[in-house]
Design a protein around this nucleic acid. Structure first.
Lengths: 352, 352
DNA sequence: CCACCGTGATAATGCGCATCACCAGTTGGC
DNA sequence: GCCAACTGGTGATGCGCATTATCACGGTGG
């Protein structure tokens, strides 16, 4: 009749062992299905133990299991920003789909590091010096905003981590599941050239992120490869919508017939600028994007490179699983996936 | 020159203690800032310890800390289905936003139980008899598809869990953060009646879920309360789109001027059926929904009750936090939140 | 009849940390 | 001059588990 019961004490292996009249080691073996290893357990005993487990509602303590050298069966996903707010979600969602899918296949749980902010809103891996990712066996890291020093430290420490997207960190070889933006960009330019365009302008957001650098490389490669069939393939830096709007008229004047933007938002800006000149897309000018990313639904259905987000997420988890399974092999695990090409209605052969 | 290094041994408190020439207890105290508790530490000693920590690059082991300390600072979210596939996401997203937000405030991490499927795809809380939710200190449970027996067992066990949405489980008092669907439904009917409608038909999907039962109650209450100003407020069971399409003509014949559907998908079906009769919405007939939920973007901007999803998610986490902070108080924690009313363009005063 | 092996179990140890009980020295009050 | 109170620390213990070394026992083969 005492309202204050003891604070819900969970049963331990020892409790199970007592009930089943065996030693704790046997319970451990049964729970982990290692009934044939150092500690051998007969079928009848195993059944008795399982019965006791059910009777007591025993569940292994993750922390203890971790500590004792086992693993937690938890895979983490770290992002430097909140995952679920609308604008973030539009970016993260495809990756998360793949991650969830692959983690589920591995029979692991998925941990989101929401408690990793130091002060204010900013998240961090190291929270007064301690690596919060330790809660998980390993982690997948995704997102643009990031603290490169931290990431480097993380790899140096040897923590099992796989990036979604290529990362080059000084003094550490990162594992990642990346998209072949270089190849995709080259493919897109080839396609554009194939349609007959000879003057192509690339509107470059100015970022030096690996994913952009890869596109740069692809663009450069295409220019070289198609040198004879192109009169111009130039890069113009346009950090924001205003810059695009301002630049487009000049590009039109200079006879460019196709504009390639970093993403669909910027491509939509370009379309708008073209139309504002009384010209039509793709009738007078073609527009394409190097990433399907966009914050808001765009007015036009832009021709764009499509990132295999879901596949990247799943691949990252699988690389991580491999990393965890063969910890002695310290070499980086890398997968590069092909991008798709979305056929919109902003790309056509040049006029006349 | 041996390729196989020792498997990355991290420094421990003991190492720090040795270097700083103090006992491990002192290091623990310094690391946790508890230099004024049972173990007292002087400023000079503390400085020496911190120096040693830096020198060794010591970082506490999370697992050990959890084991010794009793809590993991992990809050779980359990769903019976995958969270991130497109259709699921449209349902779960608002809740997750709130959950993430609140969990972040608590300085906890967020665990998704992706590893809880028994065989095939179906997830379960109990996996061969063991409660997989124990990975977390407590859990928020959300979703329609569910196994009531399991949930009852979970509560009986005393596991700290809070539902998003009202739940009545036999023999157990569930904690939940719910929406006031009853009040919202009454409010919507009042609004409709206020516009002059006297014959209202409710298209009922046939579910007996608490969230629907609450709407039933609200509808019944409104009918009673507005008895004098309503000629009819009837309920028709329409389990699917086809049933709606079939029923609507008869309702029109019978002089109903406003149709209320369970959700926006069904409401859109009703709109379509009305328009197929050559009538217009809301000119000839008004349509409203009791939930903004919809799988696909609907053609019409339906007037609907809006579930405070984000707030429910956040509230659930806060209730859980309270449950964890005062474990001796076993009473259920409950919050009921007001719904909003979205003004679309499918509701107007009746003709004439 | 004993050496030997395979089977089925136990006991002991330690993972890294937090915490509790205790202790040595130093003031300080009266 | 003696006890009290406070300061600054030590040492032991155990959280729950995995693992290793060890042991009892029965059946075989030589």
């Amino acid at each position: 009749m005492n309202g204050t019961e003891p604070p819900r004490k969970r049963p331990t292996q020892a409790d199970v062992a007592r009930l089943a009249k065996v030693s704790p080691a046997v319970v451990s073996a049964v729970v982990n299905g290692r009934t044939g290893g150092g500690v051998r357990v007969g079928d009848r005993t195993a059944a008795r133990v399982e019965q006791a487990i059910r009777q007591l509602g025993y569940a292994p303590n993750v922390a203890a299991r971790n500590l004792a050298g086992g693993r937690s069966d938890i895979i983490g996903v770290f992002t430097y920003e909140a995952l679920f707010p609308m604008d973030a979600m539009s970016f993260y969602h495809p990756f998360l789909m793949g991650v969830e899918e692959a983690v589920e296949e591995l029979d692991c749980h998925l941990l989101l590091f929401t408690g990793s902010h130091v002060d204010g809103r900013r998240r961090a891996i190291y929270k007064n010096g301690i690596n919060t990712l330790q809660h998980a066996d390993g982690a997948v890291i995704v997102g643009q905003a990031e603290n490169r020093e931290e990431l480097t430290a993380l790899l140096r420490e040897g923590f099992p981590a796989v990036f979604i997207g290529r990362r080059e960190l000084p003094g550490a070889e990162a594992s990642y599941a990346a998209a072949d933006y270089s190849g995709a960009t080259r493919g897109l330019v080839e396609r554009i050239s194939g349609l007959g365009h000879r003057r192509i302008a690339r509107l470059h957001g100015g970022s030096a992120h690996e994913s952009i650098v890869d596109r740069d490389a692809g663009f450069a490669a295409a220019r070289e490869q198609l040198a004879e069939r192109l009169d111009a393939a130039d890069v113009f830096v346009t950090p924001n919508a205003a810059a695009v709007t301002e630049l487009v008229p000049r590009l039109v004047e200079q006879g460019y017939t196709c504009l390639i933007a970093d993403d669909c938002d910027r491509a939509a800006d370009a379309c708008a600028a073209v139309e504002q000149l009384g010209l039509s897309v793709p009738g007078d000018l073609s527009v394409a994007a190097l990433s399907e990313f966009s914050l808001a639904p765009t007015a036009r259905d832009v021709n764009t490179v499509v990132t295999p987000g879901r596949e990247m997420g799943a691949a990252a988890v699988r690389l991580l699983a491999d990393l965890l399974k063969n910890p002695s092999d310290r070499s980086p695990r890398r997968t590069v996936l092909d991008c798709g090409l979305h056929d919109g209605d902003t790309l056509a052969a040049p006029r006349g």
